[in-house]
Design a binder for these strands. Structure first.
Length: 566
RNA sequence: GGGCCCAUAGUUUAGCCUGGACAGAAUGCGAGCCUCCGGAGCUUGUGACCCGGGUUCGAAUCCCGGUGGGCCCGCCA
C-alpha cells in the first residue's frame, strides 16, 4: 500500500474508533484549501444528529477522544469539520521514494486474473474513420490501466467481416470490379464499390436479392465467393494495422464475426438456449428469445436458418469465459449498441451463467461531424488516417518554429501530434458525444497532451543539467508550500490509477496529469532547482524526477509517448 | 409510441457513482511576467450548475415532473 492510501486508512480507523461510527467513503474528503489540512471528515454531522448536539460541538468531542494517527502532525476542527494535517516532511520522503520508481502506482490486485477487452472492431472493406478512434484508444488505455494493476489482459479486435454487406461487395466486384484498381488502393476502391452498389440498389431492388444470394454462397463455402472475401479481408487488415502501428495499439486476437458465424460453437449455443427453455422456435428457421417480460425487446438468434450478430456474440462470450475465466469481459463499443448488450447480458443470465454480470458494455458517446451523423454508406465521414496526418503535420510546423535544431523531429512530431489527438478524446468523460472539430482536437496549448509532454520535457531538461544525479536520501525540512503541494499531488497517483481502471475511465488519469502539470509549472516558476541551496536542490531534484516519472507513466497509461525533448 | 443517455462561464469541459466548507480547469476577452533551470509556459481579472417540485441539518450531486439535444426499438452489425 502506498503512503497516502495508508494514511487515509489510518485516519479512517482512528476516527471510527473515536466516534463509534463506520465511515462511508464519502465522509473522508479533501478540504477546500491547503490551510485547512489534507484530509477532512464530516462525520460530526451524522453523529450530532444521533446525540442531539450541534455538529461543531460534536466535532470537538470527537477530536478530544481521537488518537492521532501516524504521519499526522496536527488535527483541528473547523466548525463541524475535523481536519488532519499530514506531516509532509516525513511522509513526503516516502512519497518521493515511491514516485521515482518505474513500478509506481502498480499493484498485484490482478495477479493471476484475466480481463478480456474487445475494442476497435472496424468493418472490413471500409476505411477507418474518426468514429473508430474512440473505441480504439479508449480500449487501449483501459487495457493499459488493468495491466498496471497486475491483471493479464487479452485484447480482442472483433472485426466486422461477415454479413450481407459482403454479399454486396462480391456482387459489386463481379459487376464492375477491376483488379488493378483494387491493388492500387484497396479500401477506397472497395468502399467506392459498396457505396455505388447501395445507390444502384435504390433504383433496382433486385440487386438486394443478388447480394443476399452471394452472401448465401459465401456461407455455404462457395470457392469463388470465399476467395474474394478472403482477399478483401486480408487487404483491409493490412491497412488497419498501419493505423494501429501509428496509434501504438495492439491486439492479441482478430477473431471476428466470421470466425463465430462459421463455428460450431454458435450452433451449439442456440441448441443450448433451446434446451434450457430460454429460446423458442417461433417459425421453422426462426428462433427467438422472448425478453419482453424483462423490459427488453425480443432477441432473434436465428432467422431463415441463419445466425445473427447477437448469436455470435453469445458464442464469443462463452468461448472467452471457457478460455480465460475472466474477471471482466469488456466491450468498448459506442452507446448506440446499448440495447444489444443489455439483451446479451440478459440472455446469458437466463441461461444460468453467473458471469453475465462481468460482461460489461463500456459505452462511449457518438462522434459526429459538424454537418451531422457519420455514415460510411452515405460517404459522410472523415478518414482517421487523414486526421492523424494532419495532426503530425501541425506538430511538425510547430517544432520547426520553436525548436528547429531538434534531432529526431519526425519521431517527435508523431508523438506530439498523435498525443494531442488522443489526449483530446481521452481527457473527457467517454459518455459525452463529440462533434469532430480538427482545430479543437489538434491543439497544443492549454489543457492538451502537448502541455503534459512539455512539462515532462522541462523535467528532463533540469535533470540532464544536473547530470542525472539520483540522490535518494533527501532532506525535507522546511518545505515551501509549492513543494508540499507538488508532493501531495504526486502521492495521489496510485489511487487515481486504481479508480480509473475500476471505472474504466481513462479521463480520470488525464485530468490528474493536468493537475500535476499545473502544480509542477507553479513550482517551476516560483522556486529555483539547480540554483537552490544544497539541501533544497537535492530534494527539488528528487521532486522533478518524481514528476517526470509520474508524467511518463501516466501518459503511457493513456497510450501517449513522452519525449525528453520537443 | 416505448426505452436509455446528456444538459455546468461566450465556447470546450472536470466534479455527479459515494450529498458537505467559497463549483475546478482550459479557451476567449482584459492587465502583467524573458538579468534566473525551455514562454507549447507563469501570475492576475472576468464569467457557469436548463426549469419546477421533493428528500435532507445540507443538493451541481439523490428522487419525481417538465424543456432542449443525442441514441435505440431491422430478415444490419
Amino acid at each position: 500500500m502506498y503512503v497516502l492510501e495508508k494514511i487515509r486508512e489510518d485516519v479512517k480507523e482512528s476516527v471510527e474508533k473515536a466516534c463509534g461510527l463506520d465511515l462511508k467513503p464519502s465522509m473522508l474528503s479533501e478540504p477546500p484549501s491547503p490551510e485547512l489540512g489534507d484530509i477532512s471528515t464530516s462525520v460530526a454531522f451524522a453523529l450530532a444528529k444521533q446525540e442531539k448536539k450541534s455538529p461543531a460541538e460534536t466535532a470537538r468531542d470527537i477530536l478530544e477522544k481521537l488518537e492521532s494517527p501516524p504521519l499526522i502532525r496536527k488535527t483541528s476542527t473547523a466548525g463541524p469539520y475535523i481536519n488532519f494535517y499530514i506531516d509532509w516532511e516525513k511522509a513526503g520522503k516516502k512519497v518521493l521514494e515511491e514516485a521515482r520508481t518505474p513500478e509506481y502506482a502498480s499493484s498485484d490486485e490482478g495477479k493471476g486474473k484475466w480481463i478480456v477487452i474487445d475494442y476497435s472492431s472496424p468493418n472490413v472493406a471500409k476505411p477507418m474513420h474518426i468514429g473508430h478512434m474512440r473505441s480504439t484508444i479508449i480500449g487501449d488505455s483501459i487495457h493499459r490501466l488493468y495491466k498496471r494493476l497486475g491483471y493479464s489482459v487479452h485484447r480482442v479486435n472483433h472485426i466486422g467481416d461477415w454479413g450481407v454487406p459482403f454479399g454486396k461487395l462480391i456482387a459489386a466486384y463481379k459487376k464492375w470490379g477491376d483488379e488493378r484498381e483494387l491493388e492500387k488502393d484497396p479500401i477506397h476502391y472497395l468502399v467506392g464499390l459498396y457505396v455505388r452498389y447501395n445507390q444502384a440498389e435504390e433504383q433496382d431492388p433486385s440487386l438486394k436479392q443478388e447480394a443476399i444470394e452471394w452472401f448465401r454462397r459465401l456461407e455455404s463455402g462457395d470457392p469463388e465467393a470465399k476467395k474474394l472475401w478472403e482477399r478483401f479481408k486480408a487487404l483491409s487488415i493490412r491497412k488497419f494495422e498501419e493505423i494501429y502501428r501509428e496509434l501504438g495499439v495492439e491486439f492479441d486476437s482478430y477473431k471476428g464475426e466470421a470466425y463465430y458465424a462459421l463455428n460450431e460453437l454458435t450452433n451449439r449455443i442456440v441448441e443450448e438456449a433451446l434446451e434450457k427453455g430460454v429460446a423458442v422456435e417461433e417459425d421453422p428457421g426462426t428462433i427467438i428469445v422472448p425478453l419482453e417480460e424483462h423490459g427488453l425487446v425480443n432477441a432473434r438468434l436465428v432467422e431463415n436458418g441463419r445466425t445473427l450478430y447477437i448469436t455470435r456474440d453469445l458464442a464469443a462470450a462463452k468461448e472467452r469465459w471457457e478460455e480465460f475465466k475472466f474477471q471482466k469481459n469488456l466491450y468498448v463499443v459506442a452507446v448506440e449498441q446499448e440495447t444489444h448488450f443489455n439483451q446479451l447480458r440478459k440472455i446469458l443470465e437466463l441461461m444460468g451463467y453467473e458471469w453475465w454480470k462481468d460482461c460489461v458494455h463500456v459505452k462511449f458517446g457518438m462522434m459526429s461531424l459538424p454537418e451531422g451523423r457519420i455514415s460510411t454508406r452515405k460517404g459522410k465521414y472523415v478518414e482517421l488516417k487523414q486526421v492523424l496526418d494532419l495532426a503530425v503535420e501541425k506538430a511538425r510546423e510547430i517544432i520547426e518554429e520553436k525548436n528547429p535544431s531538434l534531432e529526431n523531429k519526425e519521431e517527435t512530431a508523431k508523438a506530439v501530434g498523435i498525443g494531442a489527438l488522443k489526449f483530446a478524446d481521452l481527457s473527457q468523460n467517454r459518455i459525452k458525444n463529440i462533434v469532430f472539430d480538427p482545430d479543437k482536437m489538434i491543439s497544443f496549448e492549454g489543457d492538451t497532451g502537448p502541455y503534459l509532454q512539455y512539462a515532462h520535457v522541462r523535467c528532463c531538461g533540469i535533470l540532464e543539467k544536473a547530470g542525472n544525479s539520483a540522490e535518494t536520501d533527501v532532506d525535507m525540512s522546511g518545505l515551501e508550500p509549492a513543494e508540499t503541494e507538488l508532493v501531495k499531488k504526486l502521492a495521489e497517483f496510485p489511487e487515481i490509477v486504481k479508480d480509473a481502471a475500476h471505472k474504466q475511465e481513462p479521463h480520470r488519469v488525464a485530468q490528474y496529469l493536468l493537475e500535476l502539470s499545473h502544480q509542477f509549472s507553479a513550482f517551476y516558476e516560483s522556486l529555483p532547482v539547480l540554483k537552490a541551496g544544497e539541501t533544497e536542490k537535492g530534494r527539488r531534484l528528487a521532486m522533478v524526477d518524481a514528476t517526470r516519472n509520474v508524467l511518463k507513466i501516466g501518459l503511457e497509461l493513456l497510450g501517449i509517448h513522452a519525449p525528453s525533448r520537443m
